[in-house]
Design a protein around this nucleic acid. Structure first.
Lengths: 362, 362
DNA sequence: TATATTCGAGAAATCGATTTCTCGCAATGG
DNA sequence: CCATTGCGAGAAATCGATTTCTCGAATATA
């Protein structure tokens, strides 16, 4: 009963060949569409495939072709909703190109990451997207040693076949600054993370340029450098509040700092956004749920996933060439409730709108 | 330069065999630990493996052994944080047993699910955990046709090699009812989902029994049957509020209903939990973020993942036997802020505590 | 018309393991 | 002391595809 014992369940290429009265080689040629096969033969083959419900055995295929059709995706924590969304986009894209994806989340645990990477190597993945925003110390060495194509964020891996996704922080920061300017802010502080990190330098530079672009003199766009943490944020907030001309808005280089800023405001009885606007960066999970929900700069997971996949495609077609052009990925502003017009501007707006009323009446 | 062209990068079993001066068969025997190999030969083999950094090619291994060492995991939506956590537990477990996991989320889209399942079949997965809580119409047919071991929730798949995870709704519901009783509630309503669904019958029955167990007469534990939706919840709430003896707490068969109940309370100016306690079921994402955060019954993702994996193991060792014992999975109460003592009980508690004060002073 | 060239399809080699077969040697028993 | 059994290890078959080799037929060229 049921399936016959001893025999493997699947239909193999030989059975298809027999039924179509061609050689297995021809069946292979048809399914892969590589070489030309006479029209009538191909038709017979497709018919046989259909009738037998044949699907090529991926293991056999991988063995001879040397291509496993499996990719790796390394994320930092699966509980941050950013990553499941990224995973899904990446998997859909990969799936459409007949790849499977092994996903691993480091949970910021080096050993865990190492174990996962070993699994990737053992499974002969054809490429890995490292979406952790942290170039963990020598984590990638094993991948590099096996010459596995790598896509990383911001920082390139030395000696690897890799493509860097260069996040265009300027896009989102520009939007943030413009957003604030449009609301009427003329003094905007920037709470930067520590400068050794390239990504922080980029974020800071983006802010300085944006401020310049909307015509703010540099003393109206002060920069405070602190840790990329809650405490760093509180320090920044205190610094700005105690300066002679406190800004009416603070843009932070990361969300944790922004949360720190919010805390200080709440303690000092300064209402956000009425008395102070706050913008974060990264759009972590938390951002949505603090009080008030944080306006923040984020990057699209779809864009990121797509860029990562395209990066791998480039590497595959690049052959032995090592250094490829980085791929730019945009960022954009998510407006929530931590930003609004400053009090002074509201007053001005009030005057103006009364004027407009008069004009309208006239 | 770098790696030699033409040659595959990996070290294969033959190289290991040569270096250890044994046959490939012996190397295989050593790595798989199946047959007995002389001590000194095994030592030589391990040494060679170590020195060459050999890891067996999983594709070749899968091809000959007929075991892909890949599992499938089907979830309903990846954006509900329940599932990433479940995924991670399941993957960790699988990884520890040398399996990889293909994860797919249906997003409640039948076609999407179908595409994913086709991929599972094509990749020759050795088992699938269907964690969707919905026996989608004939979705699993393709898996069943290929005789792939299946683990499902609540409902078994006809004719499949499958194990059912029987969720013990009673555990968590019992906790919920006891929790409410302990707070002083003596009239508790249950908002049930539609009865055709087995899972709803089970939840309802569990409630009725629990209420009975704490000595509530059935008129103090009224049941309302509605849709498993927000609207179903609003209807239930209106029904209970307008009854002659409104309950002081409502237990819902699902979180969306609970959210509907909360909405009605908010509209009627009834404070939750002061004037009305509300308990949900499922503990969906939303539950944590509504106002007030919802006390809800959930099941542990670790337990679920573990039960799912054990189910597959059972199926593997069961051979052709079809119907296996179901595996029970517990549920438990997550207490948040939508439950508290009822006003009347608070007053009583006040009296009692004053009494206790006196006693203490004495 | 004879020869060179192209092209399509089958035969056979290959990928890298596992597993069955086979054989020699040592141990056991009559 | 010889025949039988058991066991460990190498030789060879196998898994299911792809890909290279090979060869005959068809077409193009002189």
């Amino acid at each position: 009963m049921s399936t016959q014992k001893g025999k493997r369940s699947g239909v193999d290429i030989i059975q298809v060949a027999r039924r179509a009265e061609v050689s297995p080689a021809t069946v292979s040629r048809v399914t892969n569409g590589r070489s030309t096969v006479a029209r009538h033969l191909a038709k017979r083959v497709w018919k046989a495939i259909e009738e037998l419900g044949y699907t090529p055995n991926p293991q056999a295929r991988a063995l001879v072709s040397g291509r496993s059709r499996v990719l790796g995706l390394l994320v930092s924590e699966i509980t941050n909703p950013f990553f499941p969304e990224l995973m899904q986009s990446f998997e859909d894209l990969a799936g459409a190109h007949d790849f499977e994806v092994m996903v691993g989340s480091t949970n910021y645990n080096l050993e865990r990451a190492r174990v996962f990477i070993r699994r990737l190597v053992q499974r002969r993945v054809e490429g890995v997207a490292v979406m952790t925003f942290r170039a963990e110390s020598h984590l990638l060495d094993e991948l590099i040693a096996h010459n596995i194509p790598l896509v990383t964020i911001d920082v390139s891996a030395d000696g690897a076949r890799s493509v860097v996704l260069e996040v265009d922080y300027a896009l989102g920061i520009d939007q943030a600054v413009q957003h604030l300017a449009l609301l009427g802010h003329r003094r905007i502080g920037f709470a930067s993370g520590p400068m050794p990190h390239l990504t922080n330098v980029r974020r800071r530079d983006a802010f300085v340029q944006s401020a310049h672009k909307i015509g703010l003199p540099s003393q109206s766009a002060p920069v405070f450098v602190g840790e990329h943490t809650f405490e760093g944020g509180t320090q920044a907030a205190l610094h700005f509040l105690d300066s002679k001309a406190p800004p009416t808005a603070i843009v932070c280089s990361n969300d944790m700092m922004a949360v720190g800023v919010l805390r200080v405001m709440s303690e000092r009885g300064i209402k956000v956004p009425r008395d102070m606007s706050v913008v974060g960066f990264d759009d972590i999970h938390l951002a949505e749920f603090v009080n008030p929900p944080l306006t923040s700069v984020r990057m699209s997971r779809q864009d990121l996933a797509q860029a990562a996949f395209r990066g791998l495609e480039k590497l595959w077609s690049a052959g032995d060439e090592k250094s490829l052009q980085p791929i730019r990925v945009g960022t954009s502003l998510v407006v929530r409730q931590s930003t609004d017009a400053p009090k002074e501007a509201l007053a001005a707006l009030g005057r103006r709108s009364r004027m407009q009323d008069k004009l309208a009446i006239r």
